[in-house]
């Protein structure tokens, strides 16, 4: 049973009003843009009422170097991108929400989708976005004492010297 995305969009706009910022589509992939204050409510609604029960992915995009015409209309630095799947309808939906640079904070959805737990930790590690209400928000990929958030656009590809900062061997002069 295919899902009617037009219907879903209408329903979402009715339920959440101004919280739904936009609805776009590229290459047949629908994308819902919502305000970050209501992300938990929207995702709960989608999980329970629209049967998007499967969590697929959560990631983040740093819009710092994006060309002007592609900058989101809502002019925030980070875009948090959720992908969720409906097994019943065989449909996939992308949801985007916008997070400013300071404070880079958005409510956690790990209570809605259990799978978002590690994905949010990764987004925190790589982009420095804080997920409010997350039970266990700490670095996941980088070492705990690492400074900086490597996937931000202003972080250099080759790092800031961390990879060379290990004790070197000292050579004994041959007797």
């Amino acid at each position: 049973m295919a899902l009617d995305f037009k219907e879903l969009e209408k329903k979402l706009r009715e339920t959440f009003g101004a919280s739904v910022l936009d609805w776009t589509e590229f290459r047949g992939q629908p994308c819902l843009h919502v305000k970050r204050e209501s992300i938990v409510k929207v995702l709960t609604f989608l999980r329970d009422d629209a049967k998007f029960e499967m969590f697929t992915d959560l990631t983040c995009v740093d819009t710092l170097r994006l060309p002007d015409e592609m900058q989101p209309k809502y002019a925030e630095r980070f875009t948090v991108v959720y992908h969720i799947t409906s097994l019943e309808h065989g449909a996939r939906l992308r949801i985007k929400t916008y997070v400013p640079e300071d404070p880079a904070e958005v409510d956690t959805v790990s209570s809605v989708y259990l799978g978002a737990n590690w994905a949010e930790r990764e987004a925190f590690d790589m982009f420095g976005v804080n997920f409010k209400g997350h039970r266990d928000l700490r670095r996941i990929l980088m070492p705990e004492n690492y400074e900086g958030h490597p996937l931000r656009k202003d972080y250099p590809l080759k790092g800031r010297g961390e990879r060379d900062n290990f004790p070197k061997y000292t050579e004994i002069p041959e007797a």
Binding site: N145, P156, L157, R160, G161, E162, N165, F166
Partner: peptide, 16 residues
């Protein structure tokens, strides 16, 4: 091990 070396002003130059 592994902590950031302070390289002030070099970040921009290294970028890319």
């Amino acid at each position: 091990t592994g902590t950031r070396l302070s390289l002030p002003g070099k970040d921009a130059a290294q970028n890319g």
